[in-house]
Design a protein around this nucleic acid. Sequence first.
DNA 1: AACTTATTTCAACAAGTGTTTAATCATTCA
DNA 2: TGAATGATTAAACACTTGTTGAAATAAGTT
Lengths: 217, 217
Amino acid sequence: MEKPQSTKERILDAAEKLFATRGFYGVSIRQITTEAGVDPALASYHFGKKKDIFNAVMLRRAEVLNRERIAMLDDCIRRAKPNPAPLHEIIDAFTHALLNRATQGGQGWKHYFAIIAQINNHPELGGIIMTQYFDPLAKKFIAAIQETMPDSKPEDLYWCYHFLSGALTLTFSGTERINNLSEGLCPPSDLYAVHDRLVPFITAGFKVFAQPHKINP
Amino acid sequence: MEKPQSTKERILDAAEKLFATRGFYGVSIRQITTEAGVDPALASYHFGKKKDIFNAVMLRRAEVLNRERIAMLDDCIRRAKPNPAPLHEIIDAFTHALLNRATQGGQGWKHYFAIIAQINNHPELGGIIMTQYFDPLAKKFIAAIQETMPDSKPEDLYWCYHFLSGALTLTFSGTERINNLSEGLCPPSDLYAVHDRLVPFITAGFKVFAQPHKINP
DNA sequence: AACTTATTTCAACAAGTGTTTAATCATTCA
DNA sequence: TGAATGATTAAACACTTGTTGAAATAAGTT
């Protein structure tokens, strides 16, 4: 079943797992290499500094994930031509790959999402990495929405995207918070149920800012 | 202007500041006590273990914040009697104190929100602290919404609350992400503008789940 | 005043930190 | 086969980690 792993892969997997539960500063290189069953010096040999390991962990999955998301976004834009793509399809394109990996991607992906959630809310680490890996996708996404909602102000859309981003990262972070809070009523494992709620929730939020504001209900 | 600070307060302020930017594991007791201008041994003397310092930092502001939010929620429920409180007022009651402190609360509050954002997305620390300090408030809040939206399913409301929670923590985390992404178009310092967007955005999301579902636009 | 309690200091502890060095083993290629 | 490159190992580097103990000072109470 399991194909033989290279040392680099073993280190990345171990680092991913440990970073997910204890954060960047909460994990030592010796803990990582012990978990990987490998000599500590091999971490420096293969990756360099500790932050380079972290970057490699992030880059590995960000690449395949964002490739999928961009393809799906392009696809729904192309299908709708010459009209702009429908809003709920754009948001679905943005979230679908995330949901997919979080449900069927295995343990490694769960760890990856947990790290994303942490650094997305981390002033020091988040600023660099999120900007580097996710801003291009975010801009494409917002541009697509701007086209299907031409009357809305760009800054409104940026804010809405920001709210979406926060909701997403918390939902996939793997904290059992909603499960605890709801006393088992909302198992976060049921991510298809999440999809049925998240997409309409966010879509409705965006639509509020489609036309010139009417604040009060 | 500045009233003389006790050693305990100096340690708490220094810890708050450092935890905000580097996380729990990224900060040492010596860094904290150096920042506070105090002997390292005093941290143990006044607080005990390192995690007890962290807990004290969280508790100090969580208490005053949640007291305000509960009072405001009770107030808007009382004003609406015998009818249920309007949805947008409930959400405003939930977010108003946060916005207020984030704008006028000074640097300490900014650091506090940054820590909240980190632990809210942290499997290990978040589970304990957030549950301990914020779940009672969350339940009161959801119960109030359930009353003004009697036809909606409880699990839908829990999910909506979860999305709100994620949006809030990211917005107040103090990462400059939206500012960078929008290339200066959305300065996060303008938190009154945030309020005008966040409350209608969330309100609209909740309302989607008020009646039996109609998913497609 | 003397006595008690609270606070602060300094030094030390054993253990863990990221990283480097030089030596050894494995593999590849001519 | 032998030389050359790549991978792995063990040991050591100087430094930081959280926490504690005993001694010194400050504050508070009869």
